[in-house]
Write a protein that binds this DNA or RNA. Structure first.
Lengths: 185, 185
DNA sequence: TACAATTTTCAGAAATTTCTGAAACTTAAG
DNA sequence: CTTAAGTTTCAGAAATTTCTGAAAATTGTA
């Protein structure tokens, strides 16, 4: 399990970024290593390659499974658990995206929904309520939009992402077709 | 500076979520409070309302300014600095989105670009290089797409987000118009 | 210039998160 | 059933992040 200097750099960087993406350094490194390594790896190999404890690897694998980013394999005649990343790079990106939505958006939507049930007691309260409503509307729309995106076929998603400023043209066309009012701006 | 229980809950929740959104608890709370409070607040008021030290407030304000999420105001005859959030809820969301792209995507793109300059030394290296290229292509596309989105007019963005599964129809139409091959799948 | 109000800085304290490694647990095979 | 290979757990240690508060720096006013 010696890593090329390329792989080394890749793994270390994903460790650094890990915390910005929602997991800790070693989980980031484990994920990167499983991504860049051509064959399944077992816990011992991960621990050795990343120079971390066996226990830490176990916890990291559990976390990556909770993220649905890795899957378990077995080699004939070997009792060890081997792991690979779950699907293509695109599949993985989609999964990270969905899991992050779940962790970063859903709890807030849920709380704001709760808050909006309360009747405002006074004027100040009513003003706050209004702001809460605004935030809620935006986040709800974002939730629906990201949900739509993550349900798109790979092909369609690709097309959409490649549109660039062509998006505006397409939207304008849509307005015309459905008879919506044109915007002057 | 007494907070209604609504505001209280809102602020505390944003504190909890803060770490998932890229800032720490008190920064999250400060941002929430400035969002929900109808008038500008000074450092003393923030410290008092959130029960945190004056020094912590100063650091938090610096951070929120680095995120371009707040702006400074002055009240006539008062030397204190007063702060409000910078723009509408939509403006703020857009800013958070852009800053996060900058922090979560750009450094990785930059590293991967670097790695792709190296010539693979052996076969294993070449395989790794291929994976790096795949990740790079995806992230680059994502960067361009999010960049497109964040440049859209509010109106257009709203339209796009409200399309839902209508997006597929629009993409199909686009294919037809530009003569691209139709997909069977 | 002197002064007082205000903000910023930053060393160390406190809180939180991550990691280790030994013990407990699980499981497949004889 | 027993054993050994392998995995998970978790209490405490280590590392990291956040926070405090006093001192230093800045700024507006007279």
């Amino acid at each position: 399990m010696k890593l090329s200097s390329q792989a080394q750099a890749f793994v270390l960087h994903f460790g650094e970024m890990g915390s910005r993406w929602g997991f800790n350094r070693t989980v980031g490194q484990m994920f990167a290593l499983l991504t860049i390594h051509p064959s399944p790896l077992n816990a011992e190999q991960l621990a050795q390659a990343l120079k971390i404890s066996r226990g830490n690897v176990s916890m990291g694998l559990k976390e990556l499974q909770a993220w649905r980013l890795i899957e378990l394999h077995h080699q004939p005649g070997d009792r060890k658990d081997y792991f690979t990343t779950a699907g293509s790079i695109w599949d993985l990106a989609r999964t990270v995206f969905e899991e992050r939505r779940k962790r970063e958006l859903d709890p807030t939507l849920s709380l704001l929904r709760q808050l909006l049930l309360n009747e405002p007691q006074d004027d100040l309260d009513a003003q706050a309520q209004e702001k809460i409503q605004e935030v809620y509307s935006l986040l709800e729309l974002l939730e629906e939009f990201t949900n739509t995106l993550s349900k798109l076929e790979h092909q369609d998603l690709l097309k959409l992402m490649k549109l660039g400023s062509g998006i505006v043209k397409l939207l304008e066309f849509k307005s015309k077709m459905t008879g919506g009012p044109s915007r002057s701006s």
